[in-house]
């Protein structure tokens, strides 16, 4: 179909799909973060929230499959675009300068792939419970206990914090860039859209990293 070809088949269209799916994933990340911060409200509140999610049953699976679809679209198209970009300059500059491109913008694929590795590990760690004996020793209903058990290991916590740094970098460029990809550019809006990436990146990093760090420092137990 022509419309499908114009959107998926073309760089400008595919970039818009990467932008929309990226913003949807960002929305998920923000929702996930606000749920997770309930660990600071104590075991009861957190476990009640987790049980509430699980009781959604069928709806939860629809949401999970939807998220997986969005994720595959995002990652698949982003990688295809990146391969096209690499092929577009077979001979590198001997002396290459960077005038405007930010560090975050130049390592989107690397931070993205690190996120991919993290997501696999994260699901194995807490969702499928196949990565850590400490976590598996806690009953599946006690999600709070799983979090404490998992993050008591400094290496595990370190990897989580590193992954959140990658996520923050990805979003610092990605969120602001998504608006440009979607053609949203206006002097009145740019003040917001250009700062949104860095702001969301900071919230996501501080918010998520605070949990393993608090466990390690014994602030929550």
């Amino acid at each position: 179909m022509a419309l499908c070809d114009r959107i998926i088949g073309n760089g400008v269209g595919a970039k818009a799909v990467v932008a929309i799916t990226g913003l949807m994933l960002t929305g998920f990340v923000m929702a996930h973060l606000s749920g997770n911060l309930l660990v600071f409200a104590g075991p009861e509140a957190f476990n009640k929230y987790a049980a509430g999610l699980k009781s959604l049953g069928g709806i939860l699976w629809v949401a999970r499959l939807g998220l997986l679809g969005i994720f595959i679209l995002h990652l698949g198209l982003a990688i295809r675009l990146n391969l096209e970009n690499k092929a577009a300059r077979p001979q590198k500059y001997v002396n290459e300068a960077t005038m405007e491109a930010t560090f975050a913008s130049r390592y989107m694929v690397q931070t993205g792939l690190l996120l991919f590795a993290f997501i696999i590990y994260h699901l194995a760690h807490y969702t499928f419970r196949v990565a850590s004996d400490d976590v598996n020793a806690v009953p599946a209903e006690d999600v709070y206990g799983m979090v404490i058990a998992g993050f008591s290991n400094p290496i595990v916590s370190g990897f989580y914090v590193l992954a959140m740094a990658a996520l923050a970098m990805h979003l610092k460029h990605g969120v602001s860039s998504a608006f440009q990809s979607l053609g949203i550019y206006h002097p009145n809006l740019n003040v917001v859209t250009q700062k949104l990436g860095p702001i969301i990146a900071a919230i996501v990093f501080v918010g998520f990293a605070s949990i393993p760090v608090s466990v390690l420092m014994g602030c929550i137990k």
Partner: peptide
């Protein structure tokens, strides 16, 4: 066979 924009704005600077 050109590449795709990734909004790094090197073009605007150049």
């Amino acid at each position: 066979g050109f590449g795709n924009c990734t909004n790094q704005y090197e073009c605007e600077a150049a």
